[in-house]
Simulated assay, not measured.
Amino acid sequence: MEIQYIWIALAVILLLLELWAINVVLRSTGKWETKGLWLVVLIVVPLFGLIAWAIFGPKREMPEHRRS
């Protein structure tokens, strides 16, 4: 496999993850200021924005049976 195909595959994966993260941000219940900030970060610096969003972004509530 040529190296170009690997880079193309990684770029497609990054693009799909970015679109998924943007969708989650837009559907979140946070304030529009927070959503806008996350959208700017995700779009301007895609890889680092995605990592920062995964670490510091909105957390999902755990189901009741897992909270022990």
Rank of each mutant, 00 (worst) to 15 (best):
G36P: 04
E61H: 09
R60T: 09
V40S: 06
E33G: 11
L17P: 00
R67S: 00
W32F: 14
V40L: 15
R60E: 10
I51K: 02
W38G: 02
A21V: 00
F48S: 14
P46T: 06
L42D: 03
V12A: 14
I55P: 02
I22K: 14
V40C: 09
P63G: 05
R60F: 12
K35T: 02
W7M: 13
K31S: 15
L16G: 09
G57Q: 02
A11Y: 03
L15Q: 08
K35D: 02
V40K: 06
P63S: 06
V40P: 00
A54S: 15
I13A: 15
E61G: 07
L50H: 07
E18P: 00
I51Y: 10
V24D: 13
V44R: 04
A54K: 12
L39P: 02
P46C: 01
L14H: 08
V41Q: 02
V45N: 05
L14R: 09
I43F: 12
L50I: 10
R60P: 02
P58Y: 12
L19S: 04
F56L: 13
T29D: 15
S68P: 11
R66A: 14
A52Y: 14
L37I: 05
V40G: 04
K31T: 15
S68N: 12
W7C: 08
R27A: 04
P46E: 01
V44A: 13
E18N: 15
F56Y: 13
P58F: 13
V24C: 09
R60L: 14
W32R: 10
S68E: 10
L26D: 01
L17S: 08
V44S: 05
W7G: 01
L15I: 07
L50D: 04
R27Y: 00
N23K: 13
A11G: 07
